[in-house]
């Protein structure tokens, strides 16, 4: 994807706030905003105008049964303990210090990662099955669920690590924001301030699942950063998802 210039941004911003861009164009606008945050207020202002359209349709009352169905799900989920949400700012600052770490032998890793990914995908399928089985058998108390916060969560993504009792864990991200084609989400398990590469997110639509390849026992935190395709040896950006363990 080619980086967007100011002229293209100005050309597309109205269609952007109306939701009238292709996924690729939308990602380009969002990438532009990420590096030109001074334009965000302008987009927020335009979005405010566009969002008024949501109130224009003739009104209809939703059926009462719909409320019952929605509340049934919500009440069942509220009964489960939620992982405590906490401020991620300390992690941003802490991990920010790692930004300048050189990519080192990333190129050498690519070959290994390609073959490793095949195994990883099999692991993901296997682990997903295990997670489902555990849930079906009401064995939730024997697994640990960890909800991740961070900028992706603020954008509406839902990310949860399910740690299985045999020290394996899987990360599932739903509604993840789109990423440029040459970038990938990389999982890090952080122990004594050392982030260990622990999996790559391979999105399927707006969802991704990956096995976490580093044990979580005694780890301090888990995080996801956006890295060049194929992953990095060390994080090169601030986390988009993070949770202290």
């Amino acid at each position: 994807m080619r980086p967007m210039d100011e002229r293209s941004f100005d050309d597309l911003k109205d269609a952007y706030v109306l939701g009238a861009l292709s996924d690729e164009e939308r990602a380009a606008v969002e990438a532009y905003l990420a590096v030109n945050p001074e334009r965000q207020a302008e987009v927020d202002d335009l979005s405010g105008v566009a969002s008024l359209l949501a109130l224009a349709p003739p009104e209809h009352d939703p059926p009462a049964d719909l409320r019952r169905r929605v509340m049934q799900v919500v009440e069942s989920e509220s009964a489960r303990p939620r992982a405590a949400r906490r401020s991620t700012s300390s992690w941003f600052g802490w991990l920010g210090g790692l930004r300048n770490v050189a990519l080192g032998a990333a190129a050498l890793l690519v070959v290994g990662l390609l073959s490793w990914n095949v195994l990883l995908q099999e692991d993901v399928r296997d682990l997903r099955g295990q997670v489902e089985e555990a849930r079906t058998a009401n064995e939730a108390q024997e697994t640990r669920e960890i909800e991740l916060g961070g900028t992706w969560a603020e954008q509406g993504a839902r990310a949860e690590v399910t740690a299985l009792k045999d020290d394996r864990a899987i990360l599932v991200v739903e509604d993840m924001p789109s990423m440029p084609e040459d970038r990938t989400g990389q999982v890090w398990v952080i122990r004594d301030e050392n982030p260990e590469p622990s999996g790559l997110l391979e999105p399927s639509g707006n969802m991704a699942a990956t096995a976490i390849t580093t044990p979580l026992e005694d780890a301090d935190a888990i995080a996801v950063t956006i890295e060049p395709a194929g992953g990095s040896e060390e994080p090169t950006s601030d986390p988009v998802l993070v949770q202290e363990l």
Partner: peptide, 19 residues
């Protein structure tokens, strides 16, 4: 808090459903 959600649902479900 599911009851807080229920209150928000009651307040905004008509607009959302209409959209």
């Amino acid at each position: 808090d599911a009851e807080a959600f229920a209150a928000l649902y009651d307040r905004h479900s008509r607009a959302a459903y209409s959209l």
